[in-house]
Design a protein around this nucleic acid. Structure first.
Lengths: 230, 230
DNA sequence: GCAGGCATTATTGTCAACATTATTGTATGC
DNA sequence: GCATACAATAATGTTGACAATAATGCCTGC
């Protein structure tokens, strides 16, 4: 009955809208190239176009959507080069992160990381894809956060968002990328104070993620004609 | 006469507004802590508040301004830790950049870098502080751009913007940071194919910039009471 | 005389209507 | 029959007015 009128209670903030779109992209419900019309989204989320616009603008900065002036927004279509670029950067940054982490990690930090991994296992058990996507990236981000460098965190946040998009596009297998097992192994090494070991496992972990992608010559399926006919 | 009505000809885009504010911050005309009222800025640039808002949002992402919900925006006040953090990251990134550059640099790239440095010299000769600020950062950015990695460029763009703010806050001396001489020396090494040498000079260059700052215990002068009385 | 609550004010956040632009469909001239 | 120009349409970009919110000053009660 009351669902016909706009519900004030479900008024999403722009961040919430952005996150929902992000999750939809990462979960492959929104394919690259999909046009994101402002009014359509405004209708979906029951908010004004202005707020949708904020969300889209934020997503553009994260590289998840591409906005062309006067032409609207669509889900970004990362190239293979973009993908390799992201993983190159992640390797460079995250190896440094774990190597530096062993010097500053405390017991409580380890515990919080373990708790995080436990939640990942819960998500795996519950077969909750959306939660797992969020948590998998969150683990890597949590590692960076422990270093206390604000924009190291910021950069990695960016890279993880782009990784979500890339895996959504190029992932072939049904299995998910970030296994809790490897995360646990990383924490094990960190707990043992083994900087090199942690870095090695992280490198291997990233390699696994990248290897599960088809970054060869495959043409990406897309709702957009452009990429389908080129 | 006609200056009473809004002039369509001088309608700045949000990027232009953002850049003007950025330059004002880097040029120390806007001190950290200064409140940036939307309507005030809209009046200054003769645009609507919406566009000012876009510009401020963009500047927030670059870390130049801080936006508190329902409280407005003000010029960020980077801490000493933030400053060290920025230079740490710049060192990590830019050393990699120059080291990798020697393998991909072409003659035309060198020429374009030289041309850039020539413009820096012009700015020095003309004593044009604003141009020099822009060009100095631009050189470092140009180096990263030559690697062709979009978000390596993006990250460095971020770091350079923050560096502008930091130098604006903590710089004591009247002299400017990025001398064209050292830029030339970097290009010399790159041209000679000396990766280690280029990295060494870049490291020295960044050290010089950081050393010209007072990152010790000095309290920053601010228009805001908060930082003046703590 | 002072503390706490209330009204005022200034500023940001939000929205809906309007203007502008790009695209698509149609008609017309060659 | 085809190409070009034009009109209709649908989307984005912009604006100004309105609502919500936080800071400030005031006033009353103790």
């Amino acid at each position: 009955m009351d669902e016909t009128r706009p519900r004030k209670t479900s008024s999403h903030t722009s961040s919430e809208i952005g996150e929902k779109i992000w999750l939809a992209i990462a979960d492959r419900r929104l394919r690259p190239g999909t046009r994101l019309k402002e009014e359509e989204l405004a209708d979906v989320f029951q908010v004004s176009r202005a707020r949708v616009r904020q969300a889209l603008s934020s997503l553009e900065r994260d590289g998840l959507v591409t906005i062309q002036p006067n032409r609207g927004a669509c889900v970004s279509e990362p190239t293979v080069d973009d993908a390799r670029d992201v993983f190159h950067a992640r390797r460079a940054i995250e190896l440094r992160v774990v190597a530096r982490l062993v010097k500053v990690l405390r017991h409580e930090d380890i515990a919080s990381l373990r708790a995080h991994i436990a939640r990942e296992r819960d998500a795996v058990a519950a077969n909750s894809a959306v939660d797992l996507i969020r948590l998998s990236g969150g683990f890597h981000l949590a590692l960076a956060d422990l270093l206390g460098s604000d924009f190291l965190s910021g950069i990695l946040r960016d890279l993880i968002a782009r990784t979500s998009l890339i895996t959504a596009v190029y992932r072939d297998t049904a299995r998910f990328d970030c296994g809790p097992q490897e995360h646990d192994a990383i924490v094990d090494s960190l707990e043992a104070g083994d900087a090199e070991g942690a870095a090695a496992i992280m490198a291997e972990h990233l390699t696994h993620i990248e290897r599960d992608l088809n970054l060869d010559d495959r043409v990406v399926a897309s709702t957009d004609l452009r990429s389908a006919l080129t």
